[in-house]
């Protein structure tokens, strides 16, 4: 049975020139797997992630025929219940840890606060749990990091701390929105390995949002390719390089490659007809 089931999700923003649809009828389900959502900026991939947590600010609207977390309807939930879902059942890791951590609070205190808010555990238990989580994200000296402030951490460390913080409540689903694109390649690999290990060990579902096709192909199990608010194609991650939709093909071919030098890069030609296509379902 799937953890998350989304059918015909729409995110709409009113603008001065009429309604702007950022997500247009997206359907997918998520099991205990690593689901990648790829697309370019403006494709609606981040909006999809935020819509699941109902983090779209008014006047933006989220509508769906179905948006269920293990059979519970997320759309009809009260804001209070939704707060419990965020963090406890579904967590989100953003691109830049600098904007997600409170700069004037020690890291340890932040993790402890989150854990206690969601579980009501004692201070001592929460502290032990926080240290355990920091160890789990391969931080060598968790006691020192607990006492540190976010600005004292490097980008890679910050992102690992974010992951520790988001996973401390043992959520069922982790949404990672470009979690490594602010990091250098060498650190990127480390962070992904840690995330992968935790997701596997804990049997979580992962939604991995990224613009990087190669990364998603190598890291995920299944991939949804989004264009202009719709899913244009879905495939197994290891089959991504055999994708058939011209948009996916265009994206793949436009990447410069070290192993296959070319005089000119292929340029993606956008076809108006893609806008009219119906969204492919990513439900299983």
């Amino acid at each position: 049975m799937s953890l998350l089931d989304v059918e015909n999700l729409r995110v709409t923003f009113p603008t001065r020139r009429g309604e702007f649809e950022a997500v247009r009828g997206v359907s997918f389900s998520l099991g205990q797997e690593r689901l990648g959502i790829v697309g370019e900026s403006g494709s609606g991939k981040s909006m999809t992630g935020r819509a699941i947590l109902r983090l779209i600010r008014p006047p933006g609207r989220v509508e769906a025929d179905r948006m269920e977390l293990e059979g519970r309807d997320l759309l009809s939930m009260s804001e209070r219940d939704m707060q419990r879902v965020r963090g406890q059942q579904i967590s989100m890791v953003m691109q830049d840890p600098k904007f997600s951590l409170n700069p004037v609070m020690r890291i340890g205190a932040q993790i402890i606060e989150i854990y206690r808010f969601h579980t009501g555990a004692s201070k001592r238990a929460a502290r032990a749990k926080a240290i355990e989580m920091l160890e789990a994200v391969s931080i060598r000296d968790p006691e020192r990091v607990m006492r540190a402030y976010p600005h004292e951490m490097s980008g890679g460390m910050g992102q690992r701390i974010m992951i520790a913080m988001m996973l401390v409540t043992e959520p069922k689903i982790l949404i990672a929105d470009e979690p490594t694109s602010a990091l250098d390649v060498s650190v990127q690999t480390q962070v992904l390995q840690i995330m992968d290990k935790l997701v596997r060990e804990r049997g979580m579902g992962l939604i991995f949002i990224s613009h990087d096709l190669n990364l998603v192909a190598q890291f995920c199990d299944r991939v949804l390719i989004m264009y202009a608010g719709k899913i244009v194609e879905t495939c197994a991650a290891d089959k991504l390089h055999e994708a058939t939709h011209p948009y996916t093909r265009g994206l793949l071919n436009s990447l410069p490659r070290l192993d296959a030098p070319r005089e000119r890069l292929e340029v993606l030609v956008r076809d108006e007809a893609w806008l009219g296509e119906t969204s492919v379902s990513g439900r299983q």
């Binding site: 370019e40 900026s41 613009h211 096709l213 265009g250 994206l251 436009s254 990447l255 410069p256 005089e263 000119r264 890069l265 292929e266 340029v267 993606l268």
Partner: peptide, 13 residues
């Protein structure tokens, strides 16, 4: 974006 990157790199070449 990667598709735009390809256009700009081609232009620079």
């Amino acid at each position: 974006d990667v598709s735009v990157q390809a256009e700009v790199l081609n232009l620079l070449v």
